[in-house]
Nucleic acid binder design. Structure first.
Lengths: 214, 214
DNA sequence: GTTTAATAACTAACCAGTCAGTTAGGAATT
DNA sequence: AATTCCTAACTGACTGGTTAGTTATTAAAC
């Protein structure tokens, strides 16, 4: 035993992002408390000890996951929305399906689940997510709604609740897929939710005739 | 040390419900994995060993919590909805605020969080919740929507997605309160969400004029 | 006196974080 | 160009604390 491959290589630069990538996977599959550092290390191709050369604690590793793997995607969607020229209705019709896609492609839904489920036991997780994701995304959407209200385009009412009205069902769809489909629930199509719900929320669920508003 | 109070009493009938009650509290506060059986036992006024006289495992105890403490409340709301005489619009206007109230009063939101967050690691949790709560509630709502569609009262489209459109924002509100308010997020009023969102979803978010549907 | 609800001390397993030791790989020396 | 030295990236066995589940024993109740 001599010449062959070395047991490991020194790759100070590449490690952190590889570890973060592996951590995203394992956190997604097992949640925060359920994720084992040994498994993260194994998937990143290093030993557990190496993790501690780059990240001080498990929580700090999770924060790094949020910052490097999640926040950029959110920023992209927000930038798209803020650069959008056209009516709010058209923006909404473009935004929801796009958000649905990004959520599925990035495994963002799984991280949401972690934060929701373990926020109570690990408040730092909830705070990091709130500051880096929610504040940014929901804040941007709320401002867009306020502007559309000022233009007389959409109905009065708390703009933040309007934002909830828009994205709530999408989130429900995400949680449905992640939580109940694996145990036998009837599958649901996220893109279909996005499409139908946008039209519902923009023009209403009631058939137009005498009825209308309250 | 003799005459005085006995160290404990045999109360075969009362124990199970007391334990379930204590378990609901502790599960709510700490999540499933985070809840310690010692703490549940302490709050129920028994030792950990006594738990195992009535429940085989931690998961079975959780199922009992769902069945005895949660399902009856859901059944009540469902019964109310199915007995309702009147338009779907009026039913929705009554149902959402009522659901919001029940959720807050019973701590149901906290259990939702557990199921969402830990369903992946403990599939039995997700299955129990799906079978005893989701199937019942969402099934009933979907049927009500189908009937309203048949009467021509509400717009065509997948009735299940319509149901998502109705309750999604409320769920988002619940998760918001439970997850982000404790770490400094701007508070939101569940009743206000219910009220505004029902009107939004029934008659639409757009101001009526040339716009309308797509 | 018998039964059994209930206890308390126990075991076995798990896992975040530590640390003493190992080895890759570049720098200095020949 | 070959050899030696040095450092820090990396390993993997270990520790300490935690907790679901078990069991030998005790005492309440009839």
């Amino acid at each position: 035993m001599d010449k062959g491959e070395p047991k490991w290589r020194r790759r100070k630069e590449a490690r952190p992002s590889e570890i973060v990538q592996a951590a995203l996977q394992v956190f997604s599959e097992r949640g925060f408390a359920g994720a084992k550092l040994d498994e993260i290390a194994a998937r990143a191709g290093v030993s557990k000890g190496a993790l501690y050369l780059y990240f001080e604690t498990k929580e700090e590793l999770f924060r790094a996951v949020v910052r490097q793997a999640v926040a950029p995607n959110v920023a992209m969607v927000v930038a798209f929305a803020e650069a959008f020229e056209g009516s709010f209705a058209d923006l909404a019709r473009a935004l929801l399906p796009r958000a649905a896609m990004v959520i599925q492609a990035t495994g963002l839904g799984k991280v949401v689940k972690i934060v929701v489920g373990e926020g109570r036991n690990f408040p730092e997780l909830a705070r990091a997510w709130h500051d880096e994701v929610i504040q940014v995304a929901l804040g941007a959407l709320t401002r867009l709604i306020e502007r559309a209200q000022a233009r007389g385009e959409i109905a009065p009412g708390d703009p933040r609740i309007h934002a909830f009205s828009l994205i709530g069902p999408l989130l429900l769809g995400v949680l449905w897929r992640e939580t109940f489909e694996p145990v036998g629930a009837q599958p649901i199509d996220l893109a279909a939710i996005a499409e139908q719900h946008v039209e519902t929320v923009l023009s209403g669920m009631l058939v137009k005739q005498g009825e209308g508003g309250r």
